[in-house]
């Protein structure tokens, strides 16, 4: 057998590869992995927490929406099943508080009218350039699908385990950590911040153009009968709530998807077992009746 030289060659190659990979690759941007939080919507049976989504919407509306658009979302979405599930009356009233540009009318002029449930959330700035100009040159990204657009490498072998644990909440984990991750003053050793730069632990490279958006107590949450807020009015809680809301904005049919998924999986299990036994039965014998093996 020629296996010994073969094995030796293999060893040599492995050593070479190891040496190559041990070489320091140039440091990628420094990034702190956000802690994995508990989310009501994770896992195969996950559903959104309605109260959390409603709180998250309030944070979005009172804080984020001042600079960020969410142009893919319509008021009517807020009342559809599987979302914050505001009542139709609530969202009709809510939409009417916004002035929506429409037109042109018969005279060829654009005009403003009260919003309707079918209208999309109006953007805070008329165009990208205006948004940039008002924010020191940094463009506040649209929030509609941002929860799916932010992620980080899980690396080998974690990403294999993720397939089974269904961990996929990098987006909300990152957003929640980022919103609560401001440090002022920045830790020692940080290069001096330029105007319009802020230090954030979880931003890749730590420098972020968005100033700290929230303070404790800034957004008022619905009160319980005893007068206490229904959730802590803290930056940490605001961040989680708005991150959950952003997941819903990015994936409004998440609940329907997981529900249908369970039905499909159960059906496949039953159909698969039936097929397995049918297959066994058919394969027990050859066409002439002799045992197949």
């Amino acid at each position: 057998m020629t296996t010994l030289p073969f094995r030796l060659a293999l060893l040599g190659l492995a050593a070479g590869l190891g040496a190559a990979l041990a070489q320091p690759a140039s440091a990628a941007e420094e990034r702190v992995i956000p802690p994995a939080l508990r989310w009501s919507f994770s896992g195969p049976f996950g559903t959104f927490d309605r109260a959390q989504l409603q709180r998250g919407y309030k944070v979005y509306k009172e804080v984020c929406a001042n600079c960020h658009s969410a142009s893919l979302i319509a008021f009517r979405n807020l009342s559809q099943p599987g979302g914050p599930e505001f009542s139709t009356g609530q969202i009709t009233a809510l939409a009417a508080t916004y002035q929506i540009k429409d037109g042109p009318n018969e005279q060829g002029e654009m005009f403003e009218r009260p919003g309707r449930p079918a209208d999309r959330f109006p953007a805070p700035f008329p165009n990208d350039q205006a948004a940039r100009a008002a924010n020191g040159g940094a463009y506040p990204p649209d929030l509609s699908v941002l929860a799916k657009a932010r992620s980080y490498e899980r690396g080998f072998p974690t990403f294999i385990f993720d397939m089974f644990t269904q961990y996929q909440e990098q987006g909300p984990d990152y957003i929640a950590a980022l919103l609560a991750g401001y440090k002022d003053p920045p830790p020692a050793g940080t290069p001096e911040l330029q105007p319009g730069q802020y230090y954030n632990t979880y931003m890749p490279g730590h420098l972020i153009a968005m100033p700290q958006p929230m303070q404790d107590g800034q957004v008022e949450y619905p009160k319980l009968p005893n007068g206490q807020p229904s959730a802590p009015e803290t930056v940490a809680q605001y961040s989680k709530d708005v991150a959950a809301f952003m997941v819903w904005m990015a994936e409004p049919h998440l609940e329907a998807r997981k529900r249908l998924g369970m039905q499909v999986m159960l059906f496949l299990l039953i159909f698969g077992s039936l097929l397995y036994y049918t297959k066994k039965k058919i394969w027990a014998r050859m066409p002439d009746g002799s045992p197949a093996h």
Binding site: P44, P141, V145, K148, S151, Q168, Q170, K258
Partner: peptide, 14 residues
Amino acid sequence: FYMPNFMGHADNYI
């Protein structure tokens, strides 16, 4: 049904 974006890349939602 359970991890539809696992095999995709987050940047494609930008």
